[in-house]
Amino acid sequence: MQLPPALRSRLVGAPGAAEPLPVQRDPAAGAPPFHFAARRVRFPRDHEFFEDGDVQRHLYLQDVLTQVTEAPERPRVPEFTCQGAGCCQVFDTLEDYEHHYHTLHRNVCSFCRRAFPSVHLLDTHILEWHDSLFQILSERQDMYQCLVEGCTEKFKTGKDRKDHLVRRHLYPADFRFDKPKKSRGSATPVATVQVLAEALGDDGEQSGGDAMEVCSEHAAPLPERVGERRTYSHRIPSTICFGQGASRGFKSTKKRKEHR
């Protein structure tokens, strides 16, 4: 297929439409026994016209599948320790450290050191656990926000919300980031939580920022290292945050005023 050389320069030229030649149709055109009529054609998704292209698409998906490899080189670095306060995890790749940092030091509650997987869950936690106005307000209006991002519903109690999560959003009844405030680790109703509590039984030792566990037993007095951290924290006003990963209390003072 020989293309005129000027075509390539047209491609990179300025946009524009051709001034159309005069259109002059004769009624005899396409008259029976002929039936041609110029028309745009639409094909629905299952039309056989798409077969070849669809097969190529899936071959591509599967090619990647059998040949996914060549992970981006992960340079080894000399072992180093997490700089997070009270954390002594050791890493030998930056990726592992990054993941650790984002998981444990990014969305952290400044009151109880718990980490959350998202800003939304952290905000909800701070509001419900550490905002003294919340309890007062929740007696008057629905204050328990749904935990699913994008859902704006609010509920009178945590239990109502749990019912909503289970019924409307098909969440597991023991959703880990929605633990009732008063529950004791051993008293939690669902077996899974016990398994988890066991699984996490040793955790307290290793990190002050004791992660996403929301059960009360983990809110217990924090290990030594955290005490160490507190020695500096008392010199820094609580409203000052360092960096994005710093732990956080209330969202803003403005919001607090609104509550009042």
């Binding site: 293309l3 005129p4 001034e19 159309p20 028309r39």
Partner: peptide
């Protein structure tokens, strides 16, 4: 679908010498 209802695109086809290809 470009040329069916557009005299402008049909003209482009002619003016850019694309009938032979």
């Amino acid at each position: 679908n470009l040329t069916a209802n557009s005299s402008s695109f049909c003209t482009s086809l002619l003016s850019m010498d694309l009938i032979e290809p």
